[in-house]
Nucleic acid binder design. Sequence first.
DNA 1: AAGCGTGTGTGAAATATTTCTCAATATGTA
DNA 2: TACATATTGAGAAATATTTCACACACGCTT
Lengths: 216, 216
Amino acid sequence: MSDNSIPKIVISRLPVYLRALSRMINKGQLVTSSHELGKALGISSAQIRKDLSHFGEFGKQGTGYQVEFLITQLSQILNLDREWEVAVIGSGDIGHAITRYQGFADRGFRVSVIFDSDPQKVGSYINGLEVMHASQIVKVLRERNIQIAMLAIPAEYAQKVTDTVVDAGVRAILSYAPISLNVPDHVRVSYIDPVTHLQSMTYYLSTEQDLMSQPL
Amino acid sequence: MSDNSIPKIVISRLPVYLRALSRMINKGQLVTSSHELGKALGISSAQIRKDLSHFGEFGKQGTGYQVEFLITQLSQILNLDREWEVAVIGSGDIGHAITRYQGFADRGFRVSVIFDSDPQKVGSYINGLEVMHASQIVKVLRERNIQIAMLAIPAEYAQKVTDTVVDAGVRAILSYAPISLNVPDHVRVSYIDPVTHLQSMTYYLSTEQDLMSQPL
DNA sequence: AAGCGTGTGTGAAATATTTCTCAATATGTA
DNA sequence: TACATATTGAGAAATATTTCACACACGCTT
């Protein structure tokens, strides 16, 4: 059933399914089931089936799913049957780690250009890539038609740099800066801020009060 | 109204509110409103008010919220009115970047110990911290009563190391390894996998087909 | 070829989450 | 003081998301 519009939360789970399926294939596993996949991921089998049903019928009753086939399908759905070029902005510790991270190349993305505004860093090489000056962002991104940028810069500069990369044609931004960004409707933004994760978890830590032990 | 149990999704937004409020204070802003905060974060004012109403009445009708007061309240709710010690496992690029990241210290967390199993790295210093051997994890974490661990290790080792830190008493894990972890009920896990973010966004990129242009 | 165990896809029901509204209250101004 | 404007907190309504439950189908065994 091609639905009018798939819930965003469903889309956000597909990469997680893909990740688990890839592990299965690497272990030589050819077939799986929604139950098994759900157990590995800590979610219900019904949810997995419902999620997949938005895009078609990929399983076989009584049997389950062919792992490789499902990977192919999910990759197509997510437009991962091509390689995406990514720009990294900022060559500090985070930009450095991102640029060298092998996990991108393995899963459809290639960091193909990195920028910094610090003259000390411009011209140096990270993972074989020369750090270019930030003033070149618009020119280079347009030339290479790069649509994805990762921001590894301080919060103070994040909005300004965002405006720049959007101007350069970027339509997806993954920001490591701890600040909410304003972008036009046609641009997607995701955030990675480890501190917000930690701060949510500490809510539950406290002094481990037993929630069941409340009087009455 | 103290509810029986606050939705997890509400808790996950509080750190984001806190982040925005901190920026306001730093700019000297003393008062804000749900409307203004929502605009800065791209969410509705009603949602912010509803979220906060789970914990009490922090605003004043007609006026809004005292920024500093709200920060204090949110910090208490999230148990951030203390400093949390964090252990980093893995001293590769990511572990390195995490350990040096200033953003933790500023927001309630202190990386106070780092481990690696590579003899080449054990004994070296990162940000003034000596890298300890992974075999010391249980001993050191128990001694210091550390309850939060960040995993910056390859996926293959992640489950084993998770079991180790859980054994050592850790109750919150932030994992950078691209794999879903199994933990006992009393342990919280958050994941940071930049690739899943990118893969969700590429769903929307495609060749920018206009969704309105479907025939019929 | 019939019976059994397994597992999908899906409508319906149950929950969860967000948005809508508006009475109540605060501030500023004339 | 009266009035205009702003903004909260919360019940109700609207949406969104998850879970339930089961008909249907596949593969294996006998």
